[in-house]
Amino acid sequence: MSTLSQETRKSYMGVLARAHPQRLRALMPNLPPHEWLRRPEIGTTMVQGRIGATGAPFNLGEMTVTRCALKLADGTVGHAYVQGRDQDHALRAAVVDALMQTPSLEEIEVRVLAPLRAEEAEKKAARAEKAAATKVEFFTMVRGED
């Protein structure tokens, strides 16, 4: 593994997990040669909540997740855990994870991750702005004489 920090890896794996499968496919039409270490597998993760938001954990329900692991020709290993049931999504996320540990990292960051980050931020901002427009601005009615 290169000098990639755990924080960096955590950050882009989250972006890849939340990415829209079709969008990732469009940004990465071609894949480098690779070998499966674990073929894409669809499963679930049990999502936990906390009682009263900050108390003891409890099981809320599951979500679908697809995972896989692969090895590039140079031996670099890539892992993916992505939301949903799209095997191609997991494959591409694992390839990105592997390439980010090679000298291609800058190219991948610019060509794949930066657009995904920007689009996600834009989508979140749009929801937040629509929510902000529904914020109640209370005003007090003056009653009686002063």
């Binding site: 993760t45 909540g49 209370f138």
Partner: peptide, 30 residues
């Protein structure tokens, strides 16, 4: 759901870091 393998459990979700679309309180106006 019963046909799928379980990969594990998540960390408890942090609802204080929720990207909210709605949030109301019947107890505190401000």
């Amino acid at each position: 759901r019963t046909t799928l393998p379980r990969f594990g459990s998540s960390l408890p979700v942090e609802t204080k870091r929720m990207h909210m679309i709605r949030r109301i309180s019947a107890t505190f106006k401000d």
